[in-house]
Amino acid sequence: MSLFLLNDIVVFIFIEVILLLLLFISEFSVLKVLKYWDFSATTTFQYALEKRNYLVNTIIYFTVSVKIVLFIFFVKSLDELSLLVPGAMCATGVIGANSYGNILLLFKIFMLFLLSIWIIINKLDLESKVFPYIKEKYYLFSFIFVLTCIEFCLELFYFMNIPLSVPVFCCSTVFKLDNLPFELNTSGLLIIYYLLFVVILISSYYKKSIISFFANILFLFTSYYAVTYFFGTYIYELPNHKCPFCMLQKEYFYVGYFIWFSLFLGVFFGISPYIIESITLKKYTYLHKYCILFTTIFVALSTYFVVSYYLKNGVLL
């Protein structure tokens, strides 16, 4: 029962239960709306349904804000757990401690993406006088609700299965040199990385949502590998320290949070226009400029560590 291992985990699960409960309440309203919604009707019942809309909105806004705080809290707790789990030096070991960890982390990021897209569609829906996307947004909500339930189960399985006696691997063994996919080498990876960055800039500038969508998805994966296997080593100033998590620690001035959040925000603003356009069937190019902004911050930040290392030491790692 490693659930009780840390106060943090108990608190975390407790808050997740509360959110699940709130979402459950709104799912009840959502199903009602999906079943009975008829905008042309002038019955009291239809007006009551319209009012339920605001409950769902409020709960989602609350959920998203709390989820963002909880996400940071989750990462911090993993760091804390690494003191308890034998063999783990940072969150890498804890996340990889069982097969649920990595899926859970991906799931959490994906959920935040989905919730944010929901909020944008909701905003478009409320700006109109006839609730044009109410069905679409509520189907999306139901999908999010199901995913949240799955996420919660994953969390339980994950925390219950953290081994306390068998040593786990830490980042030094998880991220070995030859771990790049498609037999890429570092220079190949970097070429793709900067190439994709240029493609994103151009496609965002000319507001080509579909190109931006695919370029950003590729960029997300490329960046993960580029930061872990190349840029990270310059942040740590150690050629063999390849880890996506250690940079979140205090020793590195929490720079990891800036790096990963600017990447996620950039990718989010890059892929969401296309998704929103395919749901609302209307052009929605307003977000592209944020994609340019955050992706540039991300690339500048990661490049900075390499350049400053080179300037300081005259050599590369």
Binding site: F39, T42, E50, K51, Y54, L126, K129, F131
Partner: peptide, 8 residues
Amino acid sequence: IAKLPDIF
């Protein structure tokens, strides 16, 4: 104004 959503 007969069927305006609440915000409007």
